[in-house]
């Protein structure tokens, strides 16, 4: 794997950012708090301000540039959309 790979080694500097995206993806309670009050939920995680702002904006390019894992960005967004717009999904 190298720096041109689609899925690169997650830099340690982005650990907290990736942990935040992991929580949005997989922690139903945290996701619910985020949907209720994003800024308050973000304050739980001790992210730096720019990371937190990129998460709240859902700014994929900024998140990737800051070391976020692409899959976590993708699925955190999908899970938030399922909660926000459940009617646009057909459930099998």
């Amino acid at each position: 794997m190298n720096e041109t790979s689609h899925y690169r080694f997650p830099p340690a500097s982005a650990y907290r950012l990736n942990r935040c995206l992991f929580a949005l993806k997989s922690d139903d309670a945290f996701r619910a708090r985020f949907l209720e009050d994003a800024d308050a939920a973000m304050s739980e995680l001790e992210l730096d301000a720019e990371d937190a702002a990129a998460v709240v904006r859902g700014d994929r390019d900024a998140l990737l540039a800051r070391g976020a894992h692409p899959y976590l960005v993708f699925m955190a967004d999908l899970r938030l959309r399922i909660e926000r717009e459940p009617v646009s999904f057909e459930f099998f």
Binding site: R81, S88, F89, E90, F92
Partner: peptide, 20 residues
């Protein structure tokens, strides 16, 4: 792919049903 389980409107329904 989870879109086979919860299909967003972006996904071709007939394709999803063929995979099913």
């Amino acid at each position: 792919t989870p879109q086979l389980l919860a299909r967003p409107s972006t996904e071709d329904r007939d394709l999803v049903l063929r995979v099913h």
